[in-house]
């Protein structure tokens, strides 16, 4: 069995992987956090946000889609990569309209949390203030495309976990947007509030109605600990035992 294990290093630390695991999955299991937004444990890798870009033997690769291989020398937390990540997160902020102060997702938002983790104080890019639409037609769920980061989590969750295909992208380039399986309204689809796709949005683009601000400030997911702490702490716990 042991001979099947793949061994490689991330920032000099030896990491083991099972065959078929991606770099990201293996890193998670080893307690090494590689920042990511579109990747999600329950979903197939997608490779859209590019925040998990690491250097694999000197070449840039998305950790979420690249299979781990023996002997890989991976750089994760270098100054260059961290700054690229900041720049990409900042791109996501300026290409949408992200007003944290009135967003129900604030404190539990992975985009915001990533920006906290990377200590972003202001985007280097100019705000685009794009015109995006909102769909409030569904009785229990709202779509606010101002906040969408096009990570395709809802697309994948609805298709692969809910077996429904409520979401898909339309358009391309900067006009690309997440769209629904009906002419115009979410209420005309078979989307249900219990769907996995409802909860899987990393930002406040898909939110349940009448649940905003239920968790008081101070108790939200990222109020005290940076995103990725769970992965890093798992390692710390394992080591202290």
């Amino acid at each position: 069995m042991m001979s099947d294990r793949i061994t490689f290093t991330i920032d000099g630390v030896e990491v083991q992987a099972d065959p078929g695991q991606t770099i990201l999955q293996a890193a998670d299991a080893a307690g090494v956090y590689i920042p990511r937004l579109c990747a999600h444990k329950e979903l197939n890798p997608f490779g859209a946000c590019r925040i998990c870009t690491v250097m694999v033997n000197g070449r840039p690769q998305a950790a979420c889609t690249t299979p781990a291989a023996n002997g890989m020398i991976i750089e994760n937390e270098t100054e260059e990569l961290t700054d690229n990540r900041r720049s990409i997160v900042e791109m996501l902020f300026v290409e949408g309209n992200h007003y944290c102060m009135y967003c129900e997702k604030s404190g539990n938002c992975e985009l915001q949390a990533m920006a906290y983790r990377l200590s972003i104080m202001v985007p280097r890019h100019p705000y685009q203030f794009p015109d995006k639409d909102i769909d409030g037609s569904h009785p229990d769920i709202m779509i606010d495309r101002n906040r969408c980061i096009l990570c395709a989590r809802c697309v994948r969750a609805s298709r692969d976990l809910d077996d429904k295909n409520v979401f898909q992208f339309v358009g391309r380039g900067k006009e690309k947007k997440v769209w629904i399986n009906s002419e115009a309204k979410l209420s005309d689809t078979d989307m249900d509030v219990t769907d996995k796709a409802t909860d899987i949005c990393p930002v406040g683009a898909i939110i349940k109605k009448r649940t905003g601000y239920e968790i008081p400030i101070g108790q939200r997911a990222y109020d005290h600990k940076p995103i990725g702490s769970d992965i890093e702490e798992a390692k710390a716990t394992a080591e202290s035992n």
Partner: peptide, 9 residues
């Protein structure tokens, strides 16, 4: 195509 952030944005 708009798939990934850096190229799209």
């Amino acid at each position: 195509c708009g798939y990934c952030t850096p190229c799209r944005a």
